[in-house]
């Protein structure tokens, strides 16, 4: 257990809306091991982002609420601890990098202000020390003339620069855990490659456990150690990345892999899994994937599949393996 830095068990986060209860996260289990990069993978709406937000309770509340489960970190249950305790962890022990750097930075505050603010909150540094730290962080992220950038406003930076600033900000207090919510989605291919490089370097240089959220299996293959595949607010398959890619068990995982654009084959269209993501208010009974599953059986419509451990490092929730 010492090896585990964060453990999420049976997490359920629901949103009470006018139209009904949205069960965005409805029973997710995984553990994050020290120093690893764990990927949460799934289509949009599968609950991966809400899972990430739930760890620091950052979703809007109301309407959102953690209705069950545990998030154990450092002897604390983050799902139930007081907000005061949680605030000391936010940004210090567990930091998060958001998807769209464009909107994640406050447009009317300077870059320096936004980062220094966080450092001064958590570390016993005075302003000039915090400033120096910020400058070195920014240069470490490959931002040229970091000193000048301190007085810049977000709109003066390019998309890639903003994303780096966000990463620098999240690392500013030496967190134990970094949660990255699709940091490569809103940027173009070159910047995506650069950002992935940064994550590679981070892995090498810091003792950082990362939760990397993405819908892109190619990214997973590049930087992930293990992956949790999510569908309909649940984790459906968990395994090391090589296992996931080479030996997917869940039909949904297989579907995702088939959809990967294959450079060797001259595919004239991007494949995608047929059907649409389920309505989170009325999840299909039984296995949530059954309306889209090519291998669906009768039992799939009636019973929720149990979690099956197929090998020491591989578990899957699917009736095919019972």
């Amino acid at each position: 257990m010492d090896n585990v830095s964060l453990k999420v068990s049976n997490l359920r986060t629901h949103f009470l809306t006018r139209r009904g209860i949205v069960k965005a996260v409805d029973g997710v289990d995984f553990e994050l091991r020290r120093g690893e990069c764990l990927c949460l993978v799934g289509e949009s709406g599968c609950g991966k982002t809400v899972t990430a937000l739930s760890i620091l309770r950052l979703f809007d509340s109301p309407p959102g609420k953690i209705v069950g489960g545990q998030i154990s970190y450092d002897g604390l249950d983050l799902a139930k601890c007081s907000l005061r305790q949680l605030r000391q962890i936010r940004g210090k022990d567990i930091a998060i990098v958001f998807q769209e750097a464009q909107s994640a930075l406050n447009p009317v505050l300077t870059i320096g202000d936004q980062i220094i603010e966080q450092i001064k909150l958590h570390l016993p540094l005075d302003y000039s020390m915090a400033r120096d730290r910020t400058i070195s962080l920014l240069s470490e992220m490959g931002i040229p003339s970091a000193k000048r950038v301190l007085s810049y406003y977000p709109h003066q930076l390019s998309g890639g620069m903003k994303q780096r600033v966000l990463i620098a900000m999240s690392l500013s207090c030496d967190p134990q855990i970094l949660i990255a919510d699709e940091p490569t989605t809103a940027v173009d291919v070159t910047i995506k490659a650069q950002i992935l490089d940064i994550f590679h370097e981070l892995k090498a240089s810091r003792q950082l456990s990362t939760i990397f959220i993405t819908h892109d299996l190619a990214v997973v293959a590049e930087i992930g150690d293990r992956a949790v595949i999510m569908y309909g607010g649940k984790d459906v398959e968990t395994a090391p990345v090589s296992e996931i890619i080479n030996n997917p068990k869940h039909p949904y995982t297989s579907g995702l892999i088939e959809c990967l654009p294959d450079v060797s084959k001259t595919a004239d269209r991007l494949a995608s899994i047929p059907g649409t993501t389920p309505n989170p208010i009325e999840m299909p009974k039984g296995c949530a994937f059954h309306p889209r599953c090519p291998k669906a059986m009768k039992i799939c419509k009636q019973q929720e599949p149990p979690e099956i451990i197929t090998s020491k490092e591989h578990k899957v929730s699917c009736h095919l393996y019972t």
């Binding site: 950052l58 940004g91 998060i96 909107s103 930075l105 406050n106 966080q118 909150l121 958590h122």
Partner: peptide, 10 residues
């Protein structure tokens, strides 16, 4: 950016 601010622990 409000979520970012909260995520900082402010």
């Amino acid at each position: 950016f409000v979520t970012t601010a909260r995520a900082k622990g402010l």
